[in-house]
Structure formats: C-alpha cells, structure tokens
C-alpha cells in the first residue's frame, strides 16, 4: 500500500517508482490526500523548528572531546631516543671503565678529578652541554648531532643534560658551538662549561 509511504513522499526521498505509485493513490483517494496534508503540516512544523536554530554547544562539546582525546593519547615517547642514547652511553661508560681500570693500575696519577671534563673529549673537540626539548625525536637529535659534528659522551643528568664532544674543525670555539646548538629547534639550551 503506497499510502504508508506518504511521509517519505513528502520528504522527497522515495525512488521514482514508489513516488509514482503514491501519486496514483493521491489521484484516486480523498483520504490519502487528507493524509498528505497532515504530513505536509508535520514537515512544515519540523522545518520551522529547524529554522529557530539548534542548541549551539558545538564549540564547548569539541573542546571537551579534544581534552578527552589528549588525555587518552600516550605522550610522545621520549624513551626511544633516550634509551638509544643511554645504551650508547652505557657502552661508552663500559669502555671507559675498562680504560680507567687499566689507567688506574698503570697511571694512578692520571685519574681525573671530580668535575673535570669527562673522559672521551679529545683534543680536537669542544665539550658542550645541551638539554633537548621534550618531544624531540631521535631522528631530529641525530640530525643536529651530525650537523654539529658532535657525539654524546655523557648524560642525561637528573636535569636531562647531555655532555657532547663537538668537533673543533666545525666551530672556532666552544661558545660558538654552544650558540649554534642553542639555535636549533630541538635544543632547549646549549652551554660551554668552563
């Protein structure tokens, strides 16, 4: 029975065949035409309601949802590059431990004093301290180290500070190296210790 399709004839979503069937019934029946008027009145009433506007909670709603998503999203993993750096440092420390152990036996007088430059800074390198920004990726850090001709020799400290050995061929002095590193987006701070 096409009469039951009248609401969707009114909203214009019937396929042509069903719409034509409805129109045939409309042509034949006063009752169906009356029902058409009812649904048209319903459609007008709803349309007026739409025109009066809907509650505008979109902005607040989005802010709430965005906050939930941020809370649910794991923070960028600093661990990946830090673990890689830590692994490299462990290797360095391991090598240094062996070296120091042997030095201790052979050259006890050469044990470096607390606070001196860490072992591993060669004569052709500057010692620089840097702190990388949170969220810096391993690739970004590696890129900066490569551009500075630098390598990690110690760290991170409790404050997140790394000791770098930077090529003297790349920078005229340690201050220049520190300045250049400080200007890199992934570096929060670069200093040349005395």
């Amino acid at each position: 029975m096409s009469q039951e399709l009248l609401p969707w004839y009114v909203n214009g979503t019937l396929p042509p065949a069903e719409a034509q069937a409805v129109e045939r019934e409309l042509a034949q029946s006063e009752v169906v035409r009356g029902e058409l008027r009812l649904w048209q009145a319903v459609a007008r009433a709803v349309e007026e309601e739409r025109a009066t506007g809907i509650a505008d909670g979109a902005e607040l709603g989005w802010l709430r949802l965005a906050r939930q998503l941020r809370a649910a999203t794991p923070r960028p993993r600093r661990a990946r590059w830090q673990m890689t750096a830590a692994a490299a440092l462990l290797a360095v420390i391991g090598v240094q431990s062996v070296f120091l152990y042997r030095s201790d036996r052979a050259h006890r007088e050469e044990i470096r004093q607390l606070g001196a430059a860490p072992a591993g800074v060669r004569e052709n390198e500057w010692r620089i301290q840097v702190r990388f920004r949170d969220g810096a990726t391993l690739a970004e850090i590696e890129s900066v180290l490569a551009a500075a001709e630098a390598r990690v020799i110690d760290g991170p400290s409790a404050l997140g500070i790394y000791e770098l050995a930077v090529s003297r061929a790349r920078f005229a002095d340690a201050q220049a190296a520190a300045r250049w590193l400080s200007e890199q987006p992934v570096v929060a701070q670069g200093t040349a210790p005395p």
């Binding site: 979503t13 709803v46 349309e47």
Partner: peptide
C-alpha cells in the same frame, strides 16, 4: 522515526 524523516530527511531504508 518522525524526526529522522522530517528533520534529517532520511529515506525509510536509511
């Protein structure tokens, strides 16, 4: 059903 028909203008299969 009334809302989806007249406010959202959906077809009845939708």
């Amino acid at each position: 059903v009334v809302h989806l028909t007249f406010f959202e203008q959906l077809a009845y299969p939708e």
